[in-house]
Amino acid sequence: MDQGVDVIAKDAWSPQYPDLNQMDYAMWDSYAEVYMGCPWRIMEDCGGAFSMGAIGGSLFHGIKGFRNAPSGNYRRLISSFVTLKERAPIVGGNFAVWGGLFSAIDCSMVYMRKKEDPWNSITSGALTGAILSVRNGTGAIIGSAVIGGVLLALIEGFGILFTSFTAEQFNPANRMMEEDPNVSGQQIPFLFVFTILSGVVHYILHNL
């Protein structure tokens, strides 16, 4: 567990962050609020996921409608627009449900476990998948949970890989040429990206 914290904490969570291993319960609550933005992050992720799904959905469904149309450029455009109009909000909604639930579970895990590591997101992904397919029976629940967990584990793993890859420039040998580590150290808010990407599962499950 501590290992995960260390890997993430190395570069992006630079000196302004508190020492995660030395914090008491009250500090964890404020940590979750201040650094993860916790109760409000759920709304934020929900909205972000919706926009992302809507934009991506318009792209994909626009192309799909264009290809699935009677001949004639005008009719192709009309079909593209109609498909986009019908389907893109659905994709956005799916993403929003996934992102919001994921974020909510993730925040709850930070509060409950008093820890911040990749297992949080992996468990949240599995739980989200399980909860969303709870009406489809035990088999579906287990299947979605496995898919969610594996996918989030992949995302976490690649995130750590990418973070350590982009953090090469911050090792002590190169430290002196760095003017402002806060600006260039934190490239992508990876937690947000994990959250958002988890919505893709839903899309993949329904469309491929």
Binding site: G48, S51, M52, G53, I55, G56, L59, F60, I188, P189, F192, V193, I196, L197, G199, V200, Y203, I204, L208
Partner: peptide, 20 residues
Amino acid sequence: TMIQGGGTFGTFMSIGTGIR
């Protein structure tokens, strides 16, 4: 399937970082 999944994920991920 790999190429398809990579394309889909990559597109969505780039949109997700782009709107941010």
